[in-house]
């Protein structure tokens, strides 16, 4: 039994995949000699050498293009985009090339590629280094979207992502890099597309991802202690493929749903889940699905501003209490983009 940080689990997960399969190599900016700007890839260069751990120039298109081309020949590259915000400068390669080439080629080409990237807020980095962009990739057919919430999920999901024959975007949350977990076995595999239950309960279903899943779990503990509410917390782990069955099963039991998203309000993944729930479980619902998101604003930088923008444990608790105890389904963090 060892205590492992989320950060350390990233480099361990990559190393484990590289030890198992010579076809796996790793490419990114400052990933080798420097060990990554978040120190999440320390030790890889020393173990695997320059041929398999490649320090690239600041050329995100060239990095992902090279990874894609190599994957087309059967290699299994892991490419790092330092901050998920930088996906915007190579989005053509992601959205037009990596995602669509298999389909357009009528299945002649597979792209077994992992793009891992530091995502999410909490570091007061401002609007261009803090975004939660899972929903950008979720809306493009051909991309799998994974976002682990704890060290063991990093290990298990990275193993599956590297082995997956399709392209996977692997969103690591910056605010979780220091998160610790006791881990018995490190060489594990978790199938992509299976949600995880972080807290059991039958009063309400709270659905989260990455940091928001951890905050939902903390909220569930408070709800139980202070409000006698038993919340089931589902950590989706991946948006594509989506574990709709686990969601349905819980919603049928609870009849109340709250999604917790870190992305801005419009077209966040919670909207898709809400729509699926209304299609599949409408008669089981006791009230509308509530979406807790950041407001529809770019993320501000100052402590007090950022802290009050990203959904907090307190906000989740309050929204659940309002819903279940006060029959109030209004969600006042979502107003500014629409007229009332």
């Amino acid at each position: 039994m060892a205590q492992l940080t989320y950060r350390a689990s990233v480099s361990l997960a990559i190393a484990q995949s590289m030890r198992k399969d010579q076809k796996v190599f790793f490419i990114g900016e400052d990933v080798g000699a420097a060990g990554g700007v978040f120190k999440a890839t320390v030790g890889l260069l020393e173990e695997f050498g320059k041929e398999r751990v490649m320090d690239a120039p600041i050329s995100e298109q060239a990095i992902l293009g090279a990874a894609m081309g190599a994957a087309m020949t059967g290699l299994r590259p892991i490419a790092e985009i330092m901050f998920s915000d930088f996906l915007a400068v190579c989005w053509d390669i992601v959205a037009n090339q990596i995602a669509k080439t298999r389909y357009m080629s009528d299945g002649q080409i597979n792209i077994p590629l992992v793009i891992r990237t530091a995502n999410g807020g909490g570091s007061k980095f401002g609007a261009q280094h803090s975004q939660s962009l899972e929903n950008w990739s979720m809306m493009i057919p051909g991309l799998k979207v994974v976002a682990p919430s704890c060290p063991s999920d990093v290990l298990g999901l990275m193993d599956s992502a590297v082995k997956d024959p399709d392209p996977v975007i692997f969103y690591e949350h910056k605010s979780l890099y220091a998160f610790k977990e006791e881990i018995e076995q490190t060489d594990i595999s978790i199938p992509i597309g299976e949600a995880n239950t972080l807290h059991e309960g039958k009063d309400i279903t709270i659905i989260g991802l990455a940091l928001m899943a951890q905050r939902a779990k903390e909220a569930a503990l408070i709800l139980k202690d202070k409000h006698d509410i038993n919340a089931k917390v589902i950590d989706l782990r991946s948006l594509v493929p989506l574990d709709l069955q686990t969601i349905k099963k819980s919603v049928i039991e609870t009849g109340h749903v709250l999604t917790v998203e870190e992305n801005p309000r419009l077209c966040g993944w919670g909207a898709e889940i809400s729509s699926l729930i209304s299609e599949h479980c409408f008669k089981n619902l006791k009230g509308p699905v509530t979406r807790v998101t950041t407001p529809h604003v770019p993320l501000p930088s100052a402590d007090i501003l950022e802290d009050n923008t990203i959904p907090s444990v307190e906000l989740i608790v309050n929204e659940v209490v309002k819903k279940l105890k006060e029959n109030n389904y209004g969600n006042n963090n979502a107003i500014p983009w629409r007229n009332s």
Binding site: F25, E51, Q61, A62, L64, G65, A66, A67, M68, G69, A70, A71, M72, T73, G74, L75, D92, I93, N96, Q97
Partner: peptide
Amino acid sequence: GAHLTIANGTALASKY
């Protein structure tokens, strides 16, 4: 422009 970067990838694979 995209395919210049992707062609580097097959070339990289041959080298690898």
